[in-house]
Write a protein that binds this DNA or RNA. Sequence first.
DNA 1: CACATAGTATTAATTTACTAGTACAATGCA
DNA 2: TGCATTGTACTAGTAAATTAATACTATGTG
Lengths: 141, 141
Amino acid sequence: MSPTVDKRPIQFSLDPKSGVPYYKQIILQVEFAIADGRFVTGDQLPTVRSLAVELKINPNTVARAYNELEIRGIVTTQQGTGTFISNRTIRLTEVEREGMLEGLIRPLITKAASYGFAMDEVINAIRDSYEGIEPRGEEKS
Amino acid sequence: MSPTVDKRPIQFSLDPKSGVPYYKQIILQVEFAIADGRFVTGDQLPTVRSLAVELKINPNTVARAYNELEIRGIVTTQQGTGTFISNRTIRLTEVEREGMLEGLIRPLITKAASYGFAMDEVINAIRDSYEGIEPRGEEKS
DNA sequence: CACATAGTATTAATTTACTAGTACAATGCA
DNA sequence: TGCATTGTACTAGTAAATTAATACTATGTG
């Protein structure tokens, strides 16, 4: 019930000790926020400068993260206006979608197999993981 | 029909133009060979030196690959003896196994979701991928 | 136009990753 | 023991990745 803002602006944070580069941490946090519905199509991301100040890093680092996200079609940027979540699902053809999924899955399959996991184990684990993600609906009390 | 050896020694190969570091290419080829049954528990990998000569790279690069594979529990090395495929599935507790699967799956889920893939699409794609891998059994005609 | 706000470009410093050179240490067997 | 075979350690050179300094360009509003 904060009187000023209605949508909390999403908390970004960086872990310098993780070994994961800053720009990748930002990308992951955006991806995750989309995955669980905290970001939806049309939402504006923090500005390059504001996020840079908040995280105490250089604006270029934030810009790089936003840039990669735009290359992947996840966000749209307009100079002078801002960076926004795009409606990415519409932007891919069926062939592109399948190719991308294949690329995401192939390494998982190979590694899982070499560690001795059977297909059913993998699929069950995936089902479990999806239970932790709210499927884009509202979740007010 | 080679008169000397009965088990073909598995062809390793490197692609310098792929951008994937040599040691990772070796790891992937071992993982894949295990996944489709060309390597089974107890098999000896090529020696560090022989593979280095064959691939025209430094022994340390091969050693690094074998090292990571050992850290992951996929192979066992004995100085002076050789490097062998270990019986990894036995070496992990149930908890460790689940944790490892979780670690493999989490990034996939997040990315897939941010690209707009539904759980069913992911699972179907995984089923398709597994069709390309022989499930460790004999596959004679 | 003036100005605030937003993303972009160029350059460079620093760190990390990758590979190779070379020498060392452990195992097994005659 | 002597020696061949196997993995290991240490060092260093090169390339790539990561981040920052700084200055620039585009958009919107009065």
